[in-house]
Write a protein that binds this DNA or RNA. Structure first.
Length: 112
DNA sequence: ACCATGACGTTTC
DNA sequence: CGAAACGCCATGG
C-alpha cells in the first residue's frame, strides 16, 4: 500500500462524510475523477482498517444504499448499528430515504 | 507484460 | 427478487 493518490483520496473523502449521512462508492469514484473505478473505492475501504486515521467505512454503501460491505466488519450487524446510531434507518440492509441522507462529496481539502 | 482479485455498476435472464 | 455475465480499472504477485 504505497499508493498515495487514489486510496489516499478515497480515505480523505470518506472521512469527510458528515455524521448521519452516507455516500456511495460510485459517488466517491466519480468525485475523484475515476467514475469507473468504484471497485477501487470499495477495495480501498477494505484496506481502510489498516489506515492510522479512522475511516467511517460504514457510511459508504453502494448506489442503492445497500450495506454490501457489512460482511467486512466485525459482525454483520455492526455496520447497520453504527448507521442507525447516527439516525439512519435501515431495513433489510437497505438505507431508508437514501436520497435524503445521501451526501455528495464536495469542498474536500486533500492535504497530501 | 500477464493474470487474478474485488466492500461496484448496469444489464439481462 | 436473485444470480450471472460483462465492463471497468487499480493493485499485487
Amino acid at each position: 500500500m504505497k499508493k498515495n493518490n487514489f486510496y489516499e483520496k478515497v480515505y480523505i473523502v470518506a472521512r469527510h462524510i458528515p455524521t448521519g449521512r452516507v455516500t456511495s462508492y460510485g459517488a466517491i469514484a466519480t468525485y475523484l475523477g475515476a467514475k469507473r473505478s468504484a471497485r477501487m473505492v470499495g477495495w480501498a475501504m477494505n484496506n481502510s482498517h489498516k489506515q492510522e486515521l479512522p475511516v467511517p467505512a460504514h457510511r459508504v454503501v453502494n448506489r442503492l444504499g445497500i450495506l454490501t460491505g457489512k460482511h467486512h466488519f466485525d459482525g454483520v450487524n455492526l455496520m447497520q448499528q453504527l448507521l442507525e446510531n447516527e439516525g439512519i434507518k435501515i431495513i433489510e440492509n437497505q438505507i431508508q430515504d437514501f436520497e435524503k441522507v445521501f451526501w455528495q462529496p464536495e469542498g474536500i481539502i486533500f492535504d497530501k
